[in-house]
Design a protein around this nucleic acid. Structure first.
Lengths: 147, 147
DNA sequence: TATTACATTGTAATTCTTACAATTAATTTT
DNA sequence: AAAATTAATTGTAAGAATTACAATGTAATA
């Protein structure tokens, strides 16, 4: 069993333990998320599954992504006007985003707990979480790729 | 002259040095941005200036905020579906955002250059910038305010 | 002053997302 | 296994934020 399938199975099990029902559409959306190594938009998922589910509504994709978020197996990445992207890796990590082509690459960085602590101290907020993104241009777009 | 007015004047001077013309609407939008210590949405600016400019179009607000961004005197803060907010403080700083009431508070943190350097090293991207926000609840919303 | 270039206005269009009512399907109870 | 219940899907309409566009107005320049 591949790593992706293993994680998919865990996600399905997580859903089973709630009152959320498994449907063919749900399974397909989850499968797509866990197999694509990208961070697809709702519309990309919808288009990718058109072949298998000609009658599926785009509302179903949005509904289910919301359900998955509530259960905690999917994270939504929001970027201003543009469509949200969805990430089935829910462990802590950050994203580097190419300003040219929009590519999103994961990277890890030892927790920024210090920042949260400082923010709490300076502002008096009760701090829960943070988000961070790094912007730049990817090797393909900035011409630093060997060819 | 107040600090805000000084900075407003600098912004106006910055515009003069480009081919961007000064108009009453532009001046009013800038003035509002530099005097409000908040991070208003386009619509908030529009509503705030309705009294003074009954005929101003909301398109004018958007157009001008875009111009200001291009000149570099305003930054746009994007948060998913919700409206963009606009910040006339363009020096590096971060925001702490209250999940309850939406309040945004500035705070400073010594540059996260390390993060950018690591991201560059790990992903091969040419890195330009980053953004970070801290989320939590403000003193008013979490009941920790003395009263 | 006449001309040119840029700004504003009002409205229509666009995009992403959600709401809603009707139908269908999965689960539970009998 | 059939009936009853509950949840999910579908299609479409509605919503909100933002942009595009054409007509009109205003500032800068010659």
């Amino acid at each position: 069993m591949t790593m992706a399938n293993e994680r998919l199975q865990e996600a399905i099990d997580a859903l089973k333990s709630t009152k959320v029902r498994m449907t063919p559409q749900r399974h397909a959306i989850l499968e797509y998320l866990y197999n694509s190594m990208s961070h697809p938009t709702a519309d990309e998922i919808y288009k990718a599954l058109e072949g298998k589910f000609p009658n599926m509504s785009v509302a179903t994709v949005y509904n289910n992504l919301r359900v998955f978020k509530e259960v905690g197996i999917v994270k939504e990445l929001t970027y201003g006007d543009a469509s949200s992207r969805f990430d089935c890796v829910t462990t802590d990590h950050y994203h580097v985003i190419c300003s040219e082509c929009g590519k999103i690459v994961d990277f890890h960085y030892p927790g920024l707990n210090e920042v949260e602590a400082l923010a709490k101290h300076v502002t008096g907020f009760q701090v829960n979480s943070h988000r961070m993104e790094v912007y730049g241009t990817c090797p393909e777009c900035n011409g630093s790729m060997p060819h």
